[in-house]
């Protein structure tokens, strides 16, 4: 397995898989509502580009296979995973819990995850920047952010 895996083969495989899924989906579509005379069918252009994506993915995949397996660079996948999970949780909870509750926590965890040890400064900045953004966006620009239930802000 390690003889085959490098960034190019992974990329090519991913591209191929994505284009396959989307192409199948596009062929399964139900009837369209309109087809104006002279117009191309609505899936023609996306399908053309999906085939192009598949072709390029195959090219990259083959190029990667030719290169042979390479040890992938060492990355701190644990930190990336934590960061991603934080953002996913923040997004999922933003509507139910409100921006003012979710954002400072998300910022705090992100900063901690990146290796910044000073918890007090971290907390202060997290709250501070969220408050500043809230003032700018909601009070000044009148663009409402998801509110905290019960508090209405």
């Amino acid at each position: 397995m390690s003889r085959v895996v490098n960034t190019d083969t992974l990329l090519g495989a991913a591209g191929l898989a994505a284009s396959a899924v989307l192409l199948v989906s596009s062929y399964r579509q139900g009837a369209t509502v309109f087809l104006l005379p002279g117009d191309a069918p609505p899936f023609l252009v996306p399908q053309l580009f999906l085939y192009l994506l598949a072709a390029i993915s195959v090219a990259i995949l083959l190029g990667g296979l030719r290169r042979g397996g390479v040890r992938l660079d060492a990355r701190n996948w644990r930190a990336i995973g934590v960061g991603f999970a934080t953002l996913v949780a923040a997004t999922a909870l933003m509507k139910p819990l409100g921006y003012l509750v979710v954002a400072p926590v998300a910022v705090f965890v992100t900063v901690l995850n990146l290796g910044y040890r000073n918890l007090l400064v971290n907390a202060a900045v997290s709250v501070g920047i969220v408050a500043l953004l809230y003032l700018l966006l909601v009070s000044f620009a009148q663009m409402p952010l998801p509110t905290v239930p019960g508090l209405g802000i």
Binding site: A90, V111, Y116
Partner: peptide, 15 residues
């Protein structure tokens, strides 16, 4: 510190 700037980026991105 870069980590704090990244934190700010997260707050900005969510909003």
């Amino acid at each position: 510190p870069h980590a704090l700037v990244m934190g700010g980026v997260v707050a900005l991105s969510l909003a």
